[in-house]
Amino acid sequence: MLDYLLSQLLNGLVIGVIYAVIAAGLTIIFSILKIVNFAHGEVFMAGGYFSYFAIALLGLPALMGIPAAMLLCFLMSLLIERTLLTPLYSPKTERKGDYGVLATFGVSILLRNLALLVFGSYPLRPPSFWSGSLIVGAIYLTWDRVFAAGFGVLLLALLVWFMYRTPWGEALNAVGQSRESASIVGIDSTRFYRLAFGLGGALAGAAGALVGPIYSLSPSMGLAPDTQAFAIVILGGMGSVPGAIIAGLLIGLCENMFVAFFPDPSRALTYAQAFSLVVLMIVLLVRPTGFFGRRHMAME
């Protein structure tokens, strides 16, 4: 039993890292563009497929699938941003929140169906990054999972370094805090919207490439991580990268513990999908507009 729990714990940590990578991307998009991106899970899904086809068609080594997925997701995000999100920056657009929801929701439907069309509904499994398993005593963990977690941690570390230690990251933070002040000190906001949306997409793409060998790829694989990422982002504090990382690990762990302790094992797996949804609902209830976006009447 203890061994079982321990391997569930380790699996939870691995998944938690992946969640953190997805959520970090979502939170960057949220903090800069002020939209809740409903298409984030589909970019994650696309990342998985991009990696698969980069390996299968171009004959790249398995490891190169990750940067390929990141690059392609970055470019795809730029395309989405240029074609659909520019009205968000225009003062003429009414009800920007609703617009953002509808536009990104539409993108998610488009990408999901496009994936069904291009990739088919049968699951695909990309080659392993690192075959075999880590076996210590009774604990069993595939090297792919170890690798995914390690790479995820590396990405997150790079991201934190980028956000807090480089001029670009600092400028991005400045735009996130106040568009007006950013433009006063001469930062061209639109460039940073593009950068933020592309960066968020690249992170989702990396996560998609990383989970490919662990789970299989399917066009609907983005649905669950999407809500999980929302739960994480709100739990971690809207727009906070470190918050998203901590909350991501937490949700990954709790989800696996939930499965481990659920009394009826036959239902545990389906109800596991509901776990983060319920977390999301509770978080929304307790902090209805997250840590950002209160539209109460100002003090004065």
Binding site: I35, V36, F38, R95, G97, D98, G100, V101, F105, T227, F230, R267, T270, Y271, Q273, A274, L277, V278, L280, M281, L284, L285, P288, T289, G290, G293, R295
Partner: peptide
């Protein structure tokens, strides 16, 4: 009632989560 303090995207998120939870219950039971 529970969504009284939510608006826009948050309400959309909450109702998506509600729908999915209902669907998962229908699948599981």
């Amino acid at each position: 009632y529970v969504c009284l303090r939510m608006r826009g995207p948050y309400l959309a998120l909450f109702t998506v989560a509600f729908s999915e939870v209902l669907r998962i219950i229908l699948v599981s039971e």
